[in-house]
């Protein structure tokens, strides 16, 4: 489903940073991959390159067989197939919960208002917030906002979901409700790439864990492997710090 080959990304402003350094990756359909690594290791950059919020300097990215970095590819079409959930939710504050979920359905997927509405209500039910459809995002708790953001991404019927630290901005008591939604999603067979520090989530639902450091993939393995006998010293050091 996702194929990444020799991916390089360097930032020059404000100073030179090799955010991604020769990253290679294959993710199959239905797989749940958790990406871990210290701050600044390039996790977000990798995710953002996958849906072209960031343009890599060189390398190749195929999503569902389509070359994402080819200038001839209609990137908006790809993005509609790749849902993204952000650390800071990024809900549209001037639109109600319902409008947040219907907007892209109507403008991008060209669905009728009624269809988009039905889909939104169905998804709100799925993430457990049916009673808040008509309120504005700032009237919701962080956990509720993130669940709306997940519903907003799911409304496009994406083939892949990217999560960039979806629970990092949440109060501890709200983390569980968001992770539950994600677990259900994994159970339904969604292809997911999740950047998170929630090792419990990784252990429970990840098919594979990827450890990144300084822009490179250092170690790949099952959660089992990471928790019992991690290979590299850097991996050991990192895990000892967060566990």
């Amino acid at each position: 489903m996702i194929h990444v080959e020799n991916l390089y990304k360097t930032f020059f402003v404000p100073h030179k940073v090799k955010a991604l350094h020769n990253v290679n990756l294959n993710i199959d359909a239905g797989e749940v991959v958790v990406v871990i690594g210290p701050s600044g290791s390039g996790k977000s950059t990798l995710l953002r390159c996958l849906n072209q919020l960031e343009t890599a300097n060189s390398g190749k990215i195929l999503i569902d067989g389509i070359d994402v970095m080819d200038p001839k590819t209609n990137i908006n079409k790809i993005r509609a197939e790749v849902g993204m959930v952000f650390q800071s939710f990024n809900l549209f504050p001037h639109k109600t919960v319902l409008e947040n979920i219907t907007l892209a359905q109507i403008t991008v997927r060209k669905r009728s208002k009624a269809d988009a509405h039905d889909k939104a209500m169905h998804l709100l039910e799925k993430v457990g917030i049916t009673d808040k459809a008509r309120v504005y995002p700032d009237q919701l708790s962080g956990g509720q906002q993130q669940r709306v953001a997940i519903a907003r991404a799911l409304a496009m019927d994406p083939k892949v979901m990217l999560f960039d630290e979806p629970t990092s901005a949440l109060d501890p008591e709200m983390i569980g409700e968001v992770l539950d939604v994600m677990k259900n999603l994994a159970g339904e067979g969604m292809t997911m790439v999740v950047v998170t520090h929630e090792m419990g989530f990784a252990r429970e639902v990840a098919d594979r864990v990827i450890f990144m450091d300084q822009g490179a993939v250092v170690e790949v393995g099952t959660p089992e492997h990471f928790f019992t006998n991690p290979e590299h010293d850097r991996t050991k050091l990192f895990l000892s710090q967060i566990l």
Partner: peptide, 20 residues
């Protein structure tokens, strides 16, 4: 984050400007 969220949903530049 507002433009990133709307672009990540597949909205075009114009749609993102007009609606978000």
């Amino acid at each position: 984050g507002q433009s990133e969220a709307s672009r990540s949903l597949g909205m075009t530049y114009v749609q993102c400007m007009v609606h978000v």
